[in-house]
Design a binder for these strands. Sequence first.
DNA 1: ACAACCTTATCAAAGCTGTGTCAAGGTTGG
DNA 2: CCAACCTTGACACAGCTTTGATAAGGTTGT
Lengths: 126, 126
Amino acid sequence: MEALTIHEAAQTTGWTPRMLRYIERIGLIEPARTESGYRHYGAGELQRLRTLRELLAEHEIGLGDVAFALRLRRDEALSGAVGSWLEAEPQRPEAVSADRWLRWEQEKHARIIDALTTNETMETAA
Amino acid sequence: MEALTIHEAAQTTGWTPRMLRYIERIGLIEPARTESGYRHYGAGELQRLRTLRELLAEHEIGLGDVAFALRLRRDEALSGAVGSWLEAEPQRPEAVSADRWLRWEQEKHARIIDALTTNETMETAA
DNA sequence: ACAACCTTATCAAAGCTGTGTCAAGGTTGG
DNA sequence: CCAACCTTGACACAGCTTTGATAAGGTTGT
């Protein structure tokens, strides 16, 4: 037999049945179901449950963190938004002084107006 | 003078001074300091503080999530580990497990296995 | 020199996470 | 048909996160 019940799966992976349901609830591992609704954990899921424990232990992260990483991977808009926010991070605070940034902003403003008034054939791709 | 104190920065960004210190503590925005230790928020930091609020509001995420995303981005080993764990995810539960549990069921009843073995040429179209 | 800021550190309350346990009810195999 | 599983749902509790308030003390500008 290839698929284990939740108690058996718990036993062989070191989790509790309660936690297997929780892990499923947050979207990390969703086992197949029998017709009557029983969870069935296959070899792949058992492996992933074991590696999940290692992952958490070795990197001091929580289930919620992994769930968020999964969400990042699935939600393109989210990962884009977070990514581009983080992108603006490489802080060299000394390098760009505040008033220099202000000046650059004003220049940009001027350039935009210029571009708009002289050349209106632009493909605004969002 | 272009850089704002913590109270001024809080005022113009909609955070509280307390939260600006917290945001710094979790590594998201670390403003420059004066010689005597006062935080100084420049235009760039103010901008990032405002976009941070939008980011949280629009995607229903928390500061801790963004902090984790930052950690992912900085810790190559971590992002590798999480990534490869998630990589093994794309299960199409329907495809495999349905007939698998059926087979398991029938094994238990010691019944017509022939029907399955002769009829196992199923298209796993995904 | 004083008011009005800033700093760090600490206590506290509200809320979320991770986990156990129990209850009411469906499935299953002998 | 009964014991031993399974299901979902709820209550509960420790511990962590998020946020505020407050204290003790340094800096600053007028």
